[in-house]
Write a protein that binds this DNA or RNA. Structure first.
Lengths: 183, 183
DNA sequence: TGTACATCAGTGAACGCGCGTTCACTGATGTAC
DNA sequence: TGTACATCAGTGAACGCGCGTTCACTGATGTAC
């Protein structure tokens, strides 16, 4: 049952959005094509009318997830500067969210072993995040370097905080990282 | 063909060591029992004479990998203090090592979704690393908090550095993190 | 504007594969006498 | 110390399952006249 061009484009976007959610909640390996298509409400066979293979979808989903992170970080930067962005990222609600905002903390070590397309998408998102975290140009030439450190610390702290079951230790990690990154 | 108690204990250790290597090179999901047993030189059926299930082996392997990290970090702390430990961790050779020293950077996001035993092992390793990175007690009461930040930044920076294919950007991430953590 | 045909989004069964786990079996090790 | 038997480490086939991918088919959409 052929669909209109508009519907086809919408379906493609829905697949990418579903994959973006599943990656952030369960990582890349657990994001199966059958699950993605089921979320969209389609059967898995139709997947290949939209994508060459799983890798292509994952790469686009990483990009889409990145846009979500950028929007959130950008909004917080606008509201309360870098401290606000840091506090939001390292909050308990972000740690416990079943569908976290940041794909890097949710699937970073998998992306490190992913294919070219996925790593390219990750690099693209990372560069944009550095720019956003560096703030406006009045921040000086050190701003980019600082932004790199801020993102690395946030991703590492969130990953460690999610790795431990003990909530006291987990909170301690988030709190020390927040303190450290405040300026 | 029953083996002697000594041989049985050695086999078990070899399985854990093989799993530790495979986790650090390919993560948890890609570490299949058949691969682990093949590395040891056995067939996969015998696995269950040593472990209840995959989870138990993974948890022990995380602990074993942690001991490796602790030894390396401890040795570098002794030789050149925290700066030396940071430089070694964030070196290009650690980034490019097919069997990296640190399981947290290699499989952190997978550990965050792992079972109780694995997360317990991760927490145990983490506490020991905090103590080692805090140095001797002359460092003051801030030492533990600093150690937490140092580990989070190292794990995050290494994960980000491995995620990008562009080696200029990857080196930039490692260098900014090293600079930042030096004291 | 209406008709005839080509296109193609989506279906659902099928493929080969690797996974974790189970099991009957083998024969050397460990133990009881 | 020697013998008889129980134990159990390791084998290799088998299991059910979910994976990514392919394919013949359906029928609405898009296009050419």
């Amino acid at each position: 049952l052929r669909k209109s061009k508009l519907e086809t484009a919408q379906t493609r976007e829905m697949i990418v959005a579903a994959a973006s959610d599943l990656i952030r909640s369960g990582g890349i390996a657990e994001t199966s094509l059958a699950n993605v298509m089921a979320v969209v409400g389609l059967t898995h066979g139709g997947f290949y009318k939209h994508f060459r293979d799983k890798e292509q979808m994952i790469a686009e989903a990483v990009l889409a997830a990145g846009e979500k992170t950028l929007t959130t970080v950008g909004r917080n930067m606008g509201k309360g500067g870098r401290n606000a962005a840091v506090d939001s990222y390292l909050s308990k609600s972000h740690r416990d969210n079943p569908v976290p905002v940041c794909a890097f903390a949710a699937a970073g070590s998998e992306m490190a072993r992913a294919g070219k397309e996925t790593k390219g998408a990750a690099a693209e998102v990372m560069e944009k995040l550095f720019t956003t975290l560096a703030g406006d140009s009045s921040e000086g030439p050190e701003a980019r370097g600082e932004a790199i450190v801020v993102l690395a610390t946030m991703v590492g702290a969130m990953t460690l905080a999610r790795m431990v079951a003990d909530s006291k230790l987990s909170s301690e990690i988030l709190d020390r990282a927040k303190e450290h990154l405040h300026r």
